[in-house]
Amino acid sequence: MADPSDSKGPNPRGRAYHKGNVAADLREAAERILAAENLENVSVRRLAREVGIAPANFYNHFNNLDELLAKIASASLDQAITRAVTTWSGHGSKPELLIASATEFIQFCLRNKQLMRLMLRRREHVDGDEYDDVSARSLMEVTRFIYGDVSEVASSGPNFEKHGMAIGYIALTYGFALILADGRFSLDGEDEVQLSKFVRNGILPFLDGSAAAILAAGNEGPHPSD
């Protein structure tokens, strides 16, 4: 298949590059493509054309394309964690703040679907120490907010018996982002009220204990939004 960049000429800005800014420009070019096109359109040849360098020069800055994509995924996930921590510092109950941060993350994913694919789906692109470290931080921060003391997690990793709610919360949040991005439900992701209600109804029963009551009763039970 022809490279999508074949129809593009050299860098239209005509910038003279020097050592130190090419890597940043390659990353910015990749982020622009992810924002406007598809992940599959990001290639070494395309990026080289976007910034006006020879394709071989790409490898002076990154070992391969996956390294660049991993850096983008890691930075985006790290920013998402920082936003969540900021949300959790606000006023409200823990369930309410967890729902708020999940809604924010899901809305970000719906607005940046190709970036979401890179962060949550394409493990072949994002394996590596940097991404693994950010993923570990994600679990650490969720565990810290839910349970308080994370000294045990910091020293030995998560205990799936003791910290299951943190792991489950991350799984639910990621899962909601993926199914909504796939269009499994007729939902306007830009409608914050509608999205928040959807997330609340899906996550709150697992946070406030009503899921167990619903299952025990053998029926739908009280709706979390009632």
Rank of each mutant, 00 (worst) to 15 (best):
M1S: 15
M1K: 12
A2T: 13
P4V: 08
D6W: 01
N11W: 07
P12W: 04
G14T: 02
G14A: 05
R15V: 11
R15T: 08
A16R: 14
Y17N: 14
H18S: 15
G20N: 03
G20A: 04
N21L: 09
A23C: 05
A23M: 04
L26N: 09
R27G: 02
R27S: 14
E28T: 15
E28S: 13
A29Y: 09
A30W: 03
E31W: 02
I33Q: 07
L34R: 10
A35V: 08
E37D: 15
E37T: 07
N38G: 01
L39I: 10
L39F: 13
N41T: 05
V42H: 06
S43Y: 07
R46A: 13
E50H: 05
E50L: 02
A54E: 11
A56Y: 00
A56T: 14
F58G: 08
F58R: 07
Y59N: 03
N60W: 08
F62Q: 03
F62V: 08
F62W: 12
N63F: 11
N64H: 12
E67K: 13
E67I: 06
L69F: 05
I72N: 12
A73N: 10
A75S: 12
S76V: 14
S76I: 01
Q79F: 03
A80T: 07
A80N: 09
A80I: 03
A80H: 02
I81D: 06
T82W: 00
T82F: 00
T87W: 00
W88K: 06
W88V: 03
G92N: 11
K94G: 03
P95M: 02
P95W: 01
E96W: 02
L98T: 04
L98W: 05
T103H: 04
T103D: 02
T103Y: 03
Q107H: 07
Q107C: 00
Q107I: 09
F108T: 06
C109D: 09
N112I: 02
K113N: 04
Q114M: 12
R117M: 11
L118A: 08
M119Y: 01
L120H: 04
R121C: 08
R121M: 15
R121T: 10
D127W: 07
D127H: 15
G128Y: 13
G128C: 13
E130G: 03
V134G: 05
S135R: 15
S138Y: 13
S138V: 00
L139C: 01
G148R: 10
V150Q: 10
S151E: 13
S151A: 15
E152R: 12
E152G: 15
V153F: 15
V153S: 01
A154K: 11
A154W: 01
S156L: 00
G157E: 06
F160V: 14
F160T: 10
E161F: 13
H163Q: 14
G164Y: 09
M165I: 14
M165G: 00
G168V: 08
A171H: 02
L172W: 10
G175Y: 15
L178N: 05
L178P: 00
L178Y: 01
I179P: 01
G183M: 04
R184I: 11
F185G: 02
S186F: 10
D191A: 13
D191T: 12
E192K: 15
V193T: 11
S196G: 11
K197D: 09
R200K: 12
R200A: 02
I203Y: 04
L204W: 00
P205A: 12
P205C: 07
F206E: 04
F206D: 03
F206W: 09
L207T: 01
A213P: 00
A217N: 14
G221K: 05
P222L: 09
P222F: 02
P224E: 10
